[in-house]
Each structure stands twice: as structure tokens, then as C-alpha cells.
């Protein structure tokens, strides 16, 4: 149980990078970008094939991000220059990427078990530091004997994800970032202040998919394989992370929102892991659980607010009638 929760947290923090990408398009640019389903796999495919052909894992992972960037730019181009509806541009790109990903990989599944991945390198460096035994001895003294094999992935990925979050926060406050946000908020306005909204959309969707592909490359190395179908329904997972995170942790400032998105990605993984512990659920039910989660996260906050409003009105009414009764007597 503890180990599976630990695993959920670990993959949650990697998926959080993808969720940040989805946040950039879905919330900041107001561009529901479905490219994600394809570009995630593109990232996994590019990194895997590069690693297999002997390129150092860290460079392979960065190559994946670049590939994702270009995929996103094409979606942006289809929308801005081709004047195709945003939803449709993403779907078109997603379908096109399916074939492209197959071409990149050469076969539907690429195993990485015998390859040196970025995480294997990390673990071997990490093993000499003795941090693992330190954390595990703490857990052991708490009476848990079933300890995780390595803490390296969790700790390093927290640092990487937080670094990406801080960079995103900074970027969204720069002059270019402000224009990007305004593009999602009021295009007519920002164009009248000499911003090229087309370029902003193209680059913005590009960056978003760079993050998604980066996350895909890491997930492939974490899981030990790349599969052409690993991106199916991923956009919903990204949306789930964004929506759950926002509902749980708030959206007061940008820094708070990006942190909420990361939190949402982790909470999502944990909820799914817990749900799958139930006897009557199978691994194949995961997508259904995801859909139900998103629906709950979308409906619940509104329902709670409506109930609170109703309660408030009712209270006012009873107060008023009591007041009238007192006055009459």
C-alpha cells in the first residue's frame, strides 16, 4: 500500500509537467489543445529511439522536448494561419502524430528495460550518497519495513518540476508573458497594443507541447517502455489535474495556480491508485475513473456554491420573518 502510494506520488510529479503544459494552453491561452495525446507519445518515442541508438539519455530527453515544441507549433499554425478551429487543429495534429510516432518508433512498442535511462543513471549516482538509507531508516523507525527502493526519482523530479513551475511563473509575468495571457483573455485588445497574437499562439502552443513531450520522455524512461497508445486520453488526465488542482488549492495568483496544477496531478494519481485497490475495479477501468473524477471536479464546486447561496438566502429570510414577528408583538 505504502509502496503503491509512493509510486503514485512519483509518477504524479512527472505527469505534473504535462499538466503544466495543458494549463498553458487550456487556461492561459484559452486554447483547448488536443495535440497533447499525440505529442506525449512523440516525446516518449523520440527519447526512446535516441537512447536505443546510443545518445545520452539527458540529450535524448531534451530532443523529445524540441520535437514536442515543433508538433505544438504546427497545431498553432493550423489554427492561426490555416484558420482552422482550435479544437479541430488539435485533433488533426493528434491523428497525424499517431502515424508519425509509429514511424519514429518503427514498431508499436519499444522496450527500454535493457537501456541506460536517465533514471538508471541517476540511481547509480544516488546510491553512493546514502540518502536512500537515511530516508528508509526514518521510515523503518516509524515501524514500516516495506521501504521504497530509491528516493532519487522522487526528490530529483520534485526539484525539476518546481524549477519548471518557477520558470513558467516568471515567463508569464514578463512583457511577452503578459501579452500571451492577454491573447487568451482579450485578443482584440492586445492586438491593438501591437502584439502579434498569431506568433504568440504558435509559440505558446509549442511551449506547452514541449513540456508535454518532455513529460512523455520521462514517463517512458520511468516505465521502461514507449508505446504508441500510451497517450490515449491523456488530455483528459491533464485537464483532470488542472481542474482538480484549481478546485482544491485555489487560483488566486499565477504562482498559486501552477502549484495547484502540480498538486492536482499528484492527487489525481493517488486517487486513481486508491480506486484501483478496490477489488471490483480493473486496470482497464482507469479511463472511466478519470472521466468521473473530472466530472466531479467540475460539478462539485458549483453545487457547493449553489447550496451555500441557498442556505444564506434561507437564513436571511428566517431572520427577516423573526424580526417581523417581534415587531408585531
Amino acid at each position: 500500500m505504502l509502496i503503491s502510494l509512493f509510486g503514485a506520488f512519483e509518477s504524479g510529479i512527472i505527469y505534473a509537467i504535462m499538466a503544466l503544459g495543458v494549463y498553458l494552453t487550456f487556461r492561459v491561452l484559452d486554447f483547448p489543445d488536443l495535440t497533447v495525446d499525440g505529442s506525449f507519445v512523440t516525446g516518449a518515442a523520440v527519447a526512446s529511439i535516441a537512447i536505443i541508438s546510443g545518445i545520452p539519455p539527458i540529450i535524448a530527453t531534451l530532443m523529445a522536448a524540441v520535437a514536442g515544441f515543433f508538433a505544438g507549433c504546427v497545431t498553432g499554425l493550423l489554427h492561426t494561419k490555416g484558420k482552422i478551429n482550435s479544437l479541430l487543429s488539435g485533433i488533426l495534429m493528434m491523428i497525424a502524430l499517431y502515424s508519425i510516432n509509429l514511424r519514429i518508433m518503427g514498431q508499436p512498442t519499444l522496450p527500454l528495460l535493457n537501456e541506460t535511462t536517465i533514471f538508471k543513471q541517476l540511481e547509480s549516482i544516488w546510491a553512493s550518497t546514502g540518502i536512500n538509507s537515511f530516508f528508509n531508516s526514518i521510515l523503518g523507525s516509524l515501524g514500516m519495513d516495506n521501504t521504497p527502493a530509491t528516493w532519487s526519482i522522487l526528490i530529483v523530479m520534485i526539484i525539476v518540476t518546481i524549477a519548471i513551475k518557477l520558470l513558467t511563473d516568471y515567463y508569464l509575468k514578463t512583457e511577452v508573458g503578459l501579452a500571451l495571457r492577454a491573447t487568451g483573455d482579450n485578443q482584440k485588445m492586445i492586438r491593438s497594443f501591437s502584439a502579434n497574437t498569431d506568433t504568440l499562439i504558435i509559440v505558446g502552443v509549442g511551449f506547452s507541447n514541449a513540456l508535454v513531450a518532455f513529460s512523455g520522455a520521462l514517463i517512458a524512461q520511468h516505465g521502461g517502455f514507449a508505446d504508441v497508445g500510451m497517450g490515449i486520453g491523456l488530455i483528459i488526465i491533464g485537464l483532470a489535474s488542472v481542474i482538480i488542482g484549481e478546485a482544491l488549492f485555489g487560483t488566486k495568483t499565477i504562482a498559486r495556480t501552477t502549484l495547484a496544477v502540480i498538486g492536482g496531478a499528484i492527487v489525481y494519481r493517488i486517487v486513481v491508485t486508491l480506486a484501483l485497490q478496490a477489488e471490483f475495479l480493473e486496470t482497464g477501468d482507469m479511463k472511466l475513473i478519470t472521466a468521473l473524477l473530472v466530472i466531479a471536479a467540475l460539478v462539485a464546486p458549483k453545487a457547493i456554491r449553489t447550496r451555500r447561496e441557498k442556505k444564506r438566502r434561507l437564513q436571511k429570510r428566517t431572520e427577516l420573518s423573526r424580526y417581523k414577528v417581534e415587531e408585531a408583538s
Binding site: E175, A179, A182, I190
Partner: peptide, 28 residues
């Protein structure tokens, strides 16, 4: 039409301030 509603007053002014300049990666 002339302002971005989900952004703050200072952010809106910063965007307008960049109208006749090149937008850069420095704080708005």
C-alpha cells in the same frame, strides 16, 4: 473590449506601456 478582464490593472497598464516598444523577456 479595451482591457484584459482576468489580469490586474498594473498588468494591463504594463501591456499598454509596451505598445511602441519591443516586448522582451523582462518583468512587465
Amino acid at each position: 473590449a479595451g482591457t484584459a478582464p482576468s489580469m490586474t490593472i498594473e498588468e494591463n497598464l504594463a501591456m499598454a506601456y509596451a505598445r511602441n516598444k519591443k516586448r522582451k523577456l523582462r518583468r512587465g
